[in-house]
Design a binder for these strands. Structure first.
Lengths: 227, 227
DNA sequence: CCATGTGAAGCCTTTCACAGCT
DNA sequence: AGCTGTGAAAGGCTTCACATGG
């Protein structure tokens, strides 16, 4: 169909991709400020990442820096954007128009260049038929037909845990869906041809609080052994 | 002040804590269904985790299983809850009552046993003074005074990126804040006595789409099996 | 015989350290 | 002299494999 993009294979792992996205954001902002050059140390300072990590990440993409000088902001920005860009913009559906779903719809950070949310789904009669920001909300029972008709490749799942597996089963049965971004705090079962990215907000909060618990423990035992 | 919890030190890392939270959720559901016993294989099957990983995670907490039998659901649930519980419920503030902020407020998964969201903050006159689900919304300019008065230990940041650092600087200056859960897609600078957990929704989406790009490439080139 | 608990192996990610280019 | 690019070392997490005990 199209020319394969000369990715230096995928040594590019998930953690690296996450940082590349952060670099791109930073470079966008630097470019707007008219900054022409950055070093890996500059980037590292601004993003709280070690300069060696920055260089390693960028080295997967090729050699874009000038030794003794640094990286050209515009050049690096456009190269990064090229690497991160998909072959074509993804057509995404959002399933579950509750508060979180609506928040994501309005969330500018989720309105990237890589994909468009083109269809909404809910089970509530009050939601079905509504048009939010130009997208029509369909009933769940049209999920399969709309996935096919609108050629949706990815789905953002913001339904309650109890409904998640059911939604996913219907979606998967179409054979059209390739990826899922799941906000429901539950594990979903999918065939291994389908990729799931989990975003579990309460887990992130628990991780933070658990680490804090330890800090507190240490502080309590600070001067001597407080039992 | 309170009874020290017999943590087997903190070999308990972030990824493990994340899974412990998932185990707890699963066990809660199994307990409600009246299931008395589970094996590490059962848990692994349901959560898409290797049984050996499950056993390793649980082994950090002590020896709770019976060989040849498995784990007692109620016992394991209460032990896990004990490990994950903080010394005292945290008093949290939510800064930024936009769509995402409101979604999190209403999000039951963020209404755990570990903490309560007791105060809201925004800059918009339309939001300030409102009472949402029993919590009053204060103006940003009362952030410091309310953090102190209400003894807030953690803050959930859902303001736009451009405001995040400013908010954090004010919050940190009180000396009362110990942790931040940051949803703004930007890195924030904090003293190293303060712990930040990032939740970057657009990054998670980009990770998914980048992996899909590779799958597509392989399929176009006549590849077969997908990870 | 079954499933746990755990050292050791294997794998993945980060960090170091320095050669090489500007 | 300064900063990149990268092999090699270090560190961290997952998986294996088997001894142990019900």
């Amino acid at each position: 169909m199209s020319v394969p993009i000369p990715l230096k294979k995928s040594e590019i792992t998930d953690p690296t991709v996450g940082r590349l996205v952060a670099y791109r954001r930073l470079l966008q902002s630097l470019d707007e400020q008219g900054v022409p050059l950055v070093s890996s140390k500059d980037i590292g300072d601004m993003l709280a990442i070690k300069p060696s990590q920055v260089r390693k990440d960028l080295s997967y993409l090729g050699e874009f820096g000038k030794r003794g000088v640094g990286y050209n902001v515009q050049r690096l920005l456009s190269d990064l954007s090229g690497i991160l860009a998909p072959f074509h913009r993804w057509r995404a559906g959002l399933v579950g128009l509750g508060r979180l779903g609506e928040a994501l719809l309005g969330y500018s950070a989720l309105t990237g260049e890589s994909y468009d949310i083109v269809a909404l789904f809910d089970i509530s009669p009050q939601k079905v038929g509504r048009v939010v920001a130009g997208r029509t909300c369909y009933h769940f029972n049209q999920l399969a037909s709309q996935i096919l008709e609108q050629r949706l490749g990815v789905l953002i799942i913001t339904v309650p845990s109890s409904a998640a597996q059911q939604v996913v089963d219907v979606a998967v049965s179409t054979g059209q869906i390739q990826g899922l971004l799941n906000f429901s705090p539950t594990t979903i079962a999918v065939p291994d041809t389908i990729d799931v990215q989990y975003v579990d907000i309460s887990v992130e909060m628990e991780k933070l609080l658990f680490r804090l618990k330890f800090v507190q423990q240490q502080r309590q035992q600070g001067g001597g052994v407080v039992q």
